[in-house]
């Protein structure tokens, strides 16, 4: 078993019409033993960007703290909040700075990017543990259930979903994928990001 699977956990992000969603399970394990069922893996970066981190839990916490510091410094120096595309490259360069002794996490980020006309465009991206970015128009998956998530998301996702339809799609994708993975599950949390507000919902899942 790889060190990336030691604590378990999965994250998925999806793009909709003028909205994005990101969701994760809540399990923290130590190998096959479940330690906590309230371990959140998705963190707010700005009011329009959320970052999900899968992989080794110690690095999830370390990177959450590190990105909070880096984004705070950016906000102070630039007197503006960071855009998703900029933040994606911040994530990438932070991970690559540890190229030969990496943080064992695969990040997923979801946000709304401001367009020149003043509107918002869905922006989702993922990266591997050394910061190789992966931009997608549809969905990004990561974690111990990523193989299942790919399959279910491929089947359920469709373009231009509204916030409520996107919520249903991402919730069903996540719940049905983690039920087939022993290292993920034990509840889930979903964030729907729209230009007006962020909707947060916790889902009940199978506890076995």
């Amino acid at each position: 078993m790889s060190i990336m699977d030691h604590n378990g956990g999965s994250v998925v992000a999806m793009a909709g019409k003028d909205c994005v969603a990101i969701a994760s399970d809540l399990r923290l394990g130590a190998g096959a033993m479940t330690v906590a069922m309230n371990f959140e893996k998705i963190f707010p970066v700005t009011d329009r960007i959320y970052l999900g981190l899968t992989g080794l839990a110690t690095d999830i916490t370390t990177l959450r703290d590190r990105f909070r510091y880096l984004v705070n410094m950016f906000t102070i120096k630039e007197s503006r909040s960071i855009e998703p595309s900029t933040f994606a490259h911040l994530v990438s360069s932070t991970l690559y700075s540890r190229r030969f002794g990496p943080y064992f996490t695969e990040p997923v980020l979801a946000g709304l990017e401001r367009t020149p006309s003043g509107g918002f465009k869905p922006y989702i991206a993922g990266a591997d543990l050394i910061g190789c970015l992966n931009f997608a128009e549809d969905f990004i998956v990561a974690g111990t259930a990523s193989d299942k998530l790919f399959g279910v998301a491929e089947g359920l996702w469709e373009p231009d979903l509204g916030p409520e339809d996107l919520f249903e799609t991402i919730s069903q994708t996540l719940l049905n994928s983690v039920d087939r993975d022993a290292y993920s599950g034990w509840g889930a949390i979903v964030y729907i990001i729209t230009p007006e507000k962020v909707i947060t919902r916790t889902l009940k899942g199978r506890m076995d």
């Binding site: 604590n7 130590a30 330690v35 906590a36 309230n38 080794l56 839990a57 110690t58 370390t62």
Partner: peptide, 21 residues
């Protein structure tokens, strides 16, 4: 609950060692 890797979880109850099983 904190382990040697630096994993930390806020929990209602916890155990370490073989007793945890």
């Amino acid at each position: 609950w904190v382990d040697y890797l630096g994993t930390m979880a806020s929990v209602p109850f916890a155990a370490h060692g073989y007793g945890s099983y």
